[in-house]
């Protein structure tokens, strides 16, 4: 089953959000317009807008407010991808040339800044001040998280707690506030807003851990890039922490790889991690977050929105790429 089949009842609303996104990315400059269109056409899972819409159903649902929040969050996500490609010096994203590769780093900076600003302009139509405080805090934390990630790159002495804090800021926070802001935009109760935040946070954590596992277990075709990319870039993820705990010699081996950057050494390290039991352990951690998400979802009022959220959480736990 495809992810999109899990929320067919909100399909019409998602189409409206897609139109809102088209308007949001529009620019007077042809290059910026083209870059925005390309990002839009690349699609993606639209997981954030979906959660905004579904969460909106737990209050007085108003598509006009909900679609603004949803489009704003997706635009922030797209803007951050454009800047991430400069950070990672990436040539391709979802099989297409990145903005920085098609033009240069400066165009990518201008496009990203433009999109961030568009998203905030869209949000300025939302009058609940709490929504702005939550979103701006999350954006600040996301930037700090990415800065911290650069600081901790290649550092084999960091701990799992640092990793969890990093992925919270990098991924889980935006998904958590997608749920929370959907509820705020619909004036749902504070209790429901918080419950939806907890649901989104746990789903987001599970999503990122799964992503980090797939970076080892996925094929190059599935991932669109060679396996072990995170480790190669110096990003120490959960399977690596668990494997290092299991195999005391592995830390030294990875350290030597970082000195030589010998690719054959990396293949051997990846194989070691895959056979160490670390993947299963990391997968259990992801499942544990999903269990938390389901507990949070359990207290939501019954209905199609709740059912879809539960199905999405379960789907994320099963996803293979």
């Amino acid at each position: 089953m495809k992810l999109t089949e899990l929320y067919t009842h909100v399909k019409k609303d998602l189409q409206q959000i897609e139109k809102e996104l088209e308007q949001t990315i529009s620019s007077q400059h042809p290059i910026m317009q083209k870059a925005g269109n390309q990002l839009l056409k690349a699609g993606g899972k639209r997981i954030r807008p979906v959660f905004v819409v579904l969460s909106g159903h737990f209050g007085n649902y108003d598509i006009e407010s909900v679609k603004k929040v949803a489009a704003a969050l997706e635009t922030i996500h797209m803007a951050s991808l454009v800047h991430d490609d400069v950070i990672d010096d990436a040539e391709l994203r979802r099989g297409a040339k990145t903005v920085k590769a098609a033009y240069d780093n400066k165009v990518a900076m201008y496009t990203g800044d433009f999109l961030f600003a568009k998203a905030i302009e869209l949000m300025s139509d939302i009058h609940q001040i709490a929504a702005h405080q939550i979103l701006s805090y999350a954006m600040k934390e996301m930037s700090l998280g990415e800065i911290q990630q650069i600081k901790e790159q290649f550092d084999l002495n960091q701990n799992v707690r640092q990793y969890l804090r990093r992925i919270k800021r990098k991924t889980a926070l935006l998904i958590a506030i997608s749920c929370q802001l959907g509820a705020i935009a619909s004036n749902a109760s504070i209790e429901l807003q918080q419950r939806l935040y907890r649901f989104g946070y746990s789903v987001g954590m599970a999503y990122q851990i799964t992503d980090d596992i797939l970076d080892f277990t996925g094929t190059e075709k599935e991932l669109g890039k060679p396996a072990g990319g995170d480790l190669r870039q110096g990003n120490i993820t959960l399977p690596v922490f668990y494997a290092m705990q299991q195999l005391p010699g592995l830390k030294g081996k990875i350290g030597r790889f970082y000195e030589t950057m010998d690719e054959s050494e990396l293949s051997s390290i990846i194989d070691t991690i895959k056979t160490s039991g670390a993947i299963r352990r990391a997968s259990n951690t992801a499942q544990s977050y999903l269990a938390d998400a389901l507990v949070a979802a359990d207290g939501l009022p019954a209905g199609q929105a709740k059912n879809s959220m539960i199905k999405i959480a379960k789907y994320i736990g099963r996803r293979k790429f």
Binding site: V86, M109, F116, S124, S136, I147, I150
Partner: peptide, 25 residues
């Protein structure tokens, strides 16, 4: 290069955060 991108994004998030605390939408 990486931190130049992130520094700009960070300063940008700060302006939004500060004004949201001031409630000046």
């Amino acid at each position: 290069r990486q931190l130049t991108v992130l520094a700009g994004d960070y300063y940008s998030s700060l302006y939004y955060f500060m004004l949201s605390v001031c409630e000046d939408v």
